[in-house]
Amino acid sequence: MIEVKNMVKKFGFKKVLDDVSFTAEKGQITCLIGVNGVGKTTIMNAIMNLTPINGGDILIDGQKLNKHTYEKVTFIPDAITMLPQMKIGEAMEFMSDFYDSWNEARANDMIDFFRLNKNDRINTLSKGNTAKANLLMGLALDVDYVLMDEPFSGIDMFSREQIANVFTSHLIEDRGVIITTHEIQDIEHLIDKAVLLDNGTVYRSFDVEELRENEGKSIVDVMREVYQG
């Protein structure tokens, strides 16, 4: 389980995150929802220790983050994190060089799944294929948790569909996923849990099936309450 407890983050004197708490369980897809600029990416960065926080705790399976955690949690930012001049195959080699948890068989699986070509250079890929290659680098790691920042933004419809398919496939298996998005439509039926952020804090976090069952509301209904109410 990833636990974010009372996280506070300031930029200068401005509090961008104030007392943010939520949990993400293994085997579940947790979605951080909020309009742009609400601090979703900052939360992801903070979980990965890529930005310091001004208060609160982040625990991963009960432990604070350390270098070994990176064999357990991986982050897929909204842009690819490999050198542009690398070929996909070279990027895979890099990953396998540095991560014990790299799963070459699954990486090759994903090459097929996404119909990518290992000999293509990253800077020659289309936006959609870049996003897929980016996903590959993260998902081919045998990690327990995957953090994805806006995996659907700025790419074509068919790539979106293909990426959405990842969530129902063996590629996610029993991992814990935290995903951020500002447009929920693509994945409304894919997620287990929604954490709604507004004004730098958690407005509401809920199990989406329970919400439908108990209140007969969709995620968008709740979002409407937040952002228009």
Partner: peptide
């Protein structure tokens, strides 16, 4: 899993 895949829904939901 196949159902989850076919309907594009969460595997936990299919399980349920």
């Amino acid at each position: 899993r196949e159902i989850a895949n076919m309907f594009k829904i969460n595997p936990n939901t299919a399980q349920r």
